[in-house]
Amino acid sequence: MQSKTTIRDVARAADVSITAVSHALNGKGTLAAATRQRIIEAADRLGYQPDPLARGMRSGPLGVIGLMLRPLDTLGTYRPSGVDYFTRLTGAVAVECLERNLSVMLVRDLSKLPRPPLALALDGYIIADPLEADPVLDLLQDASLPFITIGRVPDRPAFTNWVGSGDGEDTVRILDLLRERGAERIALVTGCDRNSWNLESTAAYHQWAGERGLQARVVARPEADGMDGGRSAARELLRDGDLPDAVYCLTGRHARGILDEFTEHGISLPGQVQLVAGADSEQTRSSSPAISAIDLDPELVAAHAVEQLTSRVMIGKPAEPVALSTRLILRSTTAGPDHG
């Protein structure tokens, strides 16, 4: 069996000292940028994992779990304007851990170096919205670290250690609501991350439309584009002259951009187009008219995630999948009597 890569191996490959490797991977020292990058690339190439505590230097659990927010890893910022779901989720996870005398460590993308020194020595992880073929999950499995995900893992149908609401079920619920309120040409606007939220919502939409003989219209825009992405999606929906009479848009920032673009074109909401967002945000609440949206209830999600991780997954038992409910907040962009 091949032994694990050591810090000496990295130093030899990068032609530097062991101290230089330690400083480079921990973000310390005054190394030249080129030298630091060379060391990081060598460590990545060799698969070096700087986790001394995980190699037996501690005798028991740290009492710390990690939290990774994969959508923010891919977004390029951890402070997206108006998006409060992840702030609420983080705070709720912290409170649930405090109730169990545990601490929480927020961790960036573990698949990228340098990693925090203790990242692979924590007691377990909660991974929010993992990606398809997510390297983070492979890394955690290789390190024998227990984890639970918020949202299904797209390419691991047999993986059951997840909590969250049903993305496909929420999509059908919104489509049925819009149909009941008179919509016949419903478009779907999604993000581009390959996570279950986008993938399952799209699959459910196509199935729903096909079963009813309706034309499917899907527009995808990168999550990082925010409101500008929503404006771009709206222009695409307008381009062929066939205006949809309803739009289900997964992200709140995109939804606000759609509303603003339609309004500037003289299109009334909900008179001509109904609009529902798949995630509530500051943009959906403060718009005029205010946008109907789903409250994903991150506090409830956090409670179940921490409970399942600490009471089952970390002691080697599979999680018990729980179907979590979401709350639809009906505002001014949906027509008809308030119900649902």
Rank of each mutant, 00 (worst) to 15 (best):
residue 28 K to L: 06
residue 68 M to H: 00
residue 77 T to F: 09
residue 88 R to P: 11
residue 338 D to F: 06
residue 20 A to D: 00
residue 280 D to L: 06
residue 253 R to P: 03
residue 276 V to S: 06
residue 316 G to T: 08
residue 338 D to L: 04
residue 170 D to A: 03
residue 154 P to K: 07
residue 265 H to S: 07
residue 89 L to P: 13
residue 274 Q to W: 05
residue 162 W to D: 01
residue 192 C to V: 13
residue 159 F to E: 02
residue 178 L to D: 00
residue 284 T to R: 03
residue 337 P to R: 05
residue 20 A to G: 08
residue 27 G to H: 05
residue 167 D to P: 01
residue 210 G to T: 07
residue 248 Y to H: 15
residue 200 E to F: 09
residue 134 D to M: 10
residue 242 D to W: 07
residue 299 E to C: 11
residue 67 L to W: 03
residue 313 V to C: 03
residue 311 S to D: 04
residue 220 A to Y: 02
residue 219 V to L: 00
residue 28 K to M: 03
residue 6 T to M: 09
residue 84 D to T: 15
residue 249 C to M: 08
residue 80 P to D: 08
residue 283 Q to T: 04
residue 275 L to I: 08
residue 2 Q to F: 11
residue 213 G to C: 05
residue 253 R to C: 12
residue 301 V to R: 02
residue 2 Q to P: 15
residue 240 D to A: 14
residue 241 G to I: 12
residue 154 P to F: 12
residue 70 R to M: 04
residue 184 E to I: 01
residue 12 R to M: 08
residue 310 T to F: 03
residue 282 E to K: 09
residue 57 M to E: 02
residue 284 T to H: 07
residue 182 G to P: 10
residue 78 Y to H: 13
residue 176 D to A: 10
residue 263 T to A: 15
residue 230 G to W: 02
residue 59 S to D: 01
residue 36 R to G: 09
residue 254 H to Q: 14
residue 149 T to S: 13
residue 2 Q to I: 11
residue 115 R to H: 13
residue 302 A to E: 04
residue 88 R to T: 15
residue 263 T to P: 10
residue 64 V to N: 01
residue 255 A to L: 04
residue 224 A to R: 11
residue 108 R to L: 08
residue 241 G to T: 12
residue 276 V to L: 09
residue 105 M to N: 06
residue 74 T to P: 00
residue 320 E to L: 14
residue 38 R to T: 10
residue 170 D to K: 04
residue 101 N to D: 15
residue 237 L to D: 04
residue 113 L to S: 12
residue 159 F to A: 05
residue 188 L to F: 13
residue 105 M to W: 08
residue 77 T to C: 08
residue 136 V to G: 09
residue 317 K to R: 13
residue 16 V to F: 06
residue 50 P to R: 08
residue 325 S to A: 14
residue 309 L to C: 10
residue 169 E to S: 11
residue 4 K to M: 10
residue 304 H to K: 10
residue 278 G to M: 07
residue 216 A to W: 01
residue 62 L to I: 00
residue 137 L to F: 09
residue 274 Q to E: 05
residue 3 S to V: 05
residue 116 P to M: 07
residue 36 R to H: 02
residue 263 T to S: 15
residue 334 T to H: 01
residue 292 S to Q: 07
residue 99 E to W: 10
residue 17 S to A: 03
residue 314 M to P: 03
residue 250 L to D: 03
residue 135 P to W: 09
residue 114 P to H: 11
residue 5 T to G: 12
residue 50 P to T: 05
residue 99 E to P: 06
residue 136 V to Y: 02
residue 308 Q to K: 08
residue 312 R to F: 10
residue 274 Q to S: 15
residue 298 P to R: 02
residue 168 G to N: 00
residue 55 R to Y: 03
residue 266 G to S: 12
residue 313 V to W: 03
residue 288 S to I: 13
residue 296 L to M: 14
residue 24 A to E: 00
residue 142 D to K: 14
residue 332 S to C: 01
residue 336 G to H: 01
residue 254 H to G: 11
residue 70 R to C: 06
residue 39 I to Y: 06
residue 249 C to A: 15
residue 237 L to R: 10
